[in-house]
C-alpha cells in the first residue's frame, strides 16, 4: 500500500497529474451545472415577473405575448 502511494519515488508527479486532471475536469462540471442552474433560475424569475404583469393588466392578452416564447 505504501508502495502504491510512493509511486517509485515519483509520487508528486504522478499524483499531481491525476489531481490536476480531476480538479480541472471536475471543476468544469461543477461550474457548468452552477451556471445552468443560475440561468434557469433567472429565466423562471423573469417569467414570474411577466405573469404578474399580465395579471395586473387584467389578463389582457398582449400582442407581443403571442409570439410563442420557447418554454423550458
Amino acid at each position: 500500500m505504501a508502495d502504491f502511494f510512493a509511486m517509485g519515488g515519483y509520487a508528486a508527479y504522478v499524483w499531481g497529474s491525476y489531481l490536476v486532471v480531476a480538479l480541472v475536469l471536475g471543476g468544469l462540471l461543477v461550474w457548468s451545472r452552477q451556471q445552468l442552474k443560475s440561468r434557469r433560475a433567472a429565466l423562471a424569475r423573469l417569467k414570474a415577473q411577466e405573469d404578474r404583469r399580465t395579471e395586473i393588466a387584467g389578463g389582457e392578452p398582449e400582442q407581443t405575448n403571442s409570439t410563442g416564447t420557447p418554454q423550458d
Binding site: 445552468l36 440561468r39 433567472a42 429565466l43 423573469l46 415577473q49 411577466e50 398582449e62 407581443t64 416564447t69
Partner: peptide, 15 residues
C-alpha cells in the same frame, strides 16, 4: 439558457 434569457429580457424591455 443564456440565449433565452437574453431574448426574454429584450422582449420584456420592449413591452
Amino acid at each position: 439558457a443564456a440565449v433565452r434569457l437574453r431574448s426574454s429580457r429584450l422582449a420584456l424591455m420592449r413591452r
